[in-house]
Amino acid sequence: MPEFQFPGLNLAIATPFDDAGRIDYSRLEHNIERYLAAGVRSFLLSSGTGMHVYLSKEESEGLIKRGARIVNGRAKVIAQTSALLVEDVVERTARARDAGAEGVMVLPPFFEGPTDDQDILDFYAEVARAGLPVIGYNVPQAVGVAITPELLTKLSEIPGFCAVKDSGGDLGKQAELVRTGKFVMNGADSLVPYALYAGCHGLIWGGANFAPKTCLSIVAAAANGNWVEVRELWKLLEPAMALISKGDYVQTVYAAAQLTGYGAGSPRKPLRGLSADRIPAVRQSLDTLIEREAM
Rank of each mutant, 00 (worst) to 15 (best):
residue 3 E to K: 09
residue 4 F to H: 01
residue 8 G to F: 01
residue 11 L to I: 04
residue 13 I to R: 09
residue 22 R to H: 14
residue 23 I to G: 05
residue 26 S to C: 04
residue 28 L to A: 02
residue 29 E to P: 06
residue 31 N to E: 11
residue 31 N to G: 07
residue 35 Y to H: 13
residue 42 S to D: 03
residue 43 F to Q: 00
residue 44 L to N: 00
residue 46 S to W: 01
residue 46 S to R: 08
residue 47 S to C: 12
residue 48 G to Q: 09
residue 49 T to M: 06
residue 49 T to S: 12
residue 56 S to G: 14
residue 57 K to S: 08
residue 58 E to D: 12
residue 59 E to D: 03
residue 60 S to M: 08
residue 60 S to Q: 08
residue 69 R to K: 15
residue 70 I to P: 00
residue 71 V to K: 01
residue 72 N to Y: 04
residue 73 G to R: 00
residue 76 K to A: 13
residue 77 V to R: 00
residue 79 A to H: 14
residue 79 A to E: 13
residue 80 Q to L: 02
residue 83 A to T: 05
residue 87 E to S: 12
residue 90 V to H: 01
residue 91 E to H: 13
residue 92 R to D: 09
residue 92 R to M: 10
residue 94 A to D: 02
residue 96 A to S: 08
residue 96 A to N: 02
residue 99 A to G: 03
residue 102 E to M: 15
residue 104 V to Y: 01
residue 106 V to P: 03
residue 109 P to N: 10
residue 112 E to I: 05
residue 113 G to W: 00
residue 114 P to Y: 14
residue 115 T to A: 12
residue 122 D to I: 01
residue 123 F to Q: 01
residue 124 Y to E: 10
residue 140 P to S: 12
residue 143 V to Y: 01
residue 146 A to K: 14
residue 149 P to W: 10
residue 150 E to W: 01
residue 151 L to Q: 11
residue 152 L to W: 02
residue 153 T to C: 10
residue 153 T to G: 11
residue 154 K to L: 06
residue 157 E to H: 11
residue 163 A to N: 07
residue 165 K to F: 11
residue 168 G to A: 02
residue 170 D to R: 01
residue 170 D to W: 03
residue 177 L to M: 08
residue 179 R to C: 13
residue 179 R to A: 15
residue 180 T to Q: 04
residue 183 F to Y: 12
residue 184 V to C: 05
residue 185 M to L: 13
residue 185 M to S: 04
residue 186 N to L: 14
residue 187 G to L: 02
residue 187 G to V: 04
residue 188 A to R: 02
residue 188 A to M: 05
residue 189 D to V: 11
residue 191 L to F: 04
residue 195 A to E: 06
residue 195 A to C: 10
residue 198 A to C: 06
residue 201 H to V: 09
residue 202 G to E: 06
residue 208 A to S: 15
residue 214 T to G: 07
residue 215 C to W: 05
residue 216 L to C: 06
residue 217 S to A: 15
residue 220 A to W: 00
residue 222 A to Q: 08
residue 222 A to M: 07
residue 223 A to T: 10
residue 224 N to E: 15
residue 226 N to R: 09
residue 228 V to C: 09
residue 230 V to C: 11
residue 230 V to N: 14
residue 231 R to N: 14
residue 231 R to V: 14
residue 233 L to F: 09
residue 235 K to S: 09
residue 236 L to F: 10
residue 238 E to K: 06
residue 239 P to A: 03
residue 243 L to T: 06
residue 247 G to W: 11
residue 247 G to T: 09
residue 250 V to K: 00
residue 253 V to M: 07
residue 254 Y to L: 13
residue 255 A to I: 00
residue 259 L to V: 04
residue 261 G to L: 08
residue 261 G to F: 08
residue 262 Y to S: 03
residue 263 G to K: 03
residue 266 S to F: 02
residue 267 P to W: 07
residue 268 R to I: 02
residue 269 K to F: 01
residue 269 K to P: 00
residue 270 P to S: 09
residue 273 G to A: 15
residue 280 P to D: 10
residue 281 A to H: 04
residue 284 Q to F: 11
residue 285 S to N: 13
residue 288 T to W: 05
residue 288 T to A: 14
residue 289 L to Q: 15
residue 290 I to S: 03
residue 290 I to E: 08
residue 292 R to P: 11
residue 293 E to C: 11
residue 293 E to G: 05
residue 294 A to W: 08
